[in-house]
């Protein structure tokens, strides 16, 4: 109460210059958002529907577009669960154990963030491509990774690797391992500890990480583009399909497919906001725990 009472006179006496700066900063931030986020988003939908709903639907139900949707979902369905398992395992190891190379593991988890996606794609081509290190061996055993679906999955996994782990590590660090130790002393097995104590404590952060991971997995362009080979109907994911349509001067089609990705982004954003609201209140409930 005291803070509110004392804040009021301050506000009244705040010099005009400061209020100007205040307004200016908010204005710049909002203007920036409008110009660089909302406007393009609106443009995507306007362009997609420019030639009418019929063209829009036709572009989406086109067999190549459907194949791209299917492939995008397939890649995400493989990459996201794998990265979820990896993320939880890595976060657990980073926060519960002391081991040699812990700092290295931390740096490695961040590596995909710091490497350009195109370079990460190239790495896979250099490793598994026809001229790559393992190329001859793979060919001899008739395994096709590059310019095929497995390559897309690999590249996507690499690019989206940090999302879940990075979301969990700070939370698990803050929570410590007291509750897990308490569960152990009470007689719980490793799995019981994980499912009854650890998972419920990290569930919102985990979901949040999975969501971001999924958005990136579906939207990834650079790395996927390098390993895909752009075989229509076979190795084209949604972002690649947009590019192809665009290069074919099929703007309405390109924007129609792009609108799907934009929708995905919007849904992710809504879910993320909801989770932040939900997860934030949980954090607040934890605050009086003290210490």
């Amino acid at each position: 109460m005291a803070a509110v009472v004392s804040a009021a006179p301050l506000r009244r006496h705040r010099p005009i210059g400061r209020r100007l700066v205040h307004g200016l900063l908010i204005g710049v931030a909002l203007g920036f958002l409008l110009l660089f986020l909302l406007l393009p988003l609106a443009a995507v939908f306007v362009e997609a529907l420019r030639k009418g709903l019929g063209t829009y639907v036709a572009a989406i139900v086109h067999p190549e577009a459907l194949a791209a949707i299917e492939l995008t979902l397939l890649v995400a369905v493989i990459a996201v669960p794998l990265n979820t398992v990896f993320g939880v395992a890595a976060a657990w190891a980073m926060t519960h154990f002391d081991f040699r190379g812990k700092a290295l593991l931390g740096a490695l988890i961040d590596l995909p963030f710091s490497v350009s996606p195109v370079v990460s794609g190239l790495i896979y081509v250099l490793l598994f491509g026809a001229q790559g290190w393992f190329g001859p061996w793979l060919q001899a055993h008739d395994i096709k990774l590059i310019f095929a679906v497995p390559g897309l999955v690999l590249a996507t996994i690499f690019v989206t690797l940090p999302f879940v782990a990075r979301e969990l590590i700070p939370l698990m660090q803050a929570q410590g391992s007291d509750e897990e130790e308490a569960a152990r002393v009470l007689g719980a097995s490793g799995w019981q500890i994980f499912f009854r104590v650890t998972l419920p404590n990290i569930r919102w952060a985990l979901l949040y990480g999975v969501l971001l991971c999924n958005a990136r997995a579906m939207g990834e362009f650079g790395a996927v583009s390098v390993v895909s080979g752009h075989i229509r109907g076979l190795t084209n994911t949604l972002p690649l399909h947009v590019e192809i349509l665009y290069n074919d001067y099929n703007y309405a089609g390109a924007f129609a497919v792009a609108s799907l990705l934009a929708l995905l982004a919007l849904v992710t954003l809504c879910l993320k906001t909801f989770l932040e609201w939900r997860y934030g209140s949980e954090l607040a409930a934890r605050a009086p725990r003290g210490h």
Partner: peptide, 8 residues
């Protein structure tokens, strides 16, 4: 535990 470590 010192800080009780209750399952929150």
């Amino acid at each position: 535990f010192q800080h009780y470590a209750l399952f929150r």
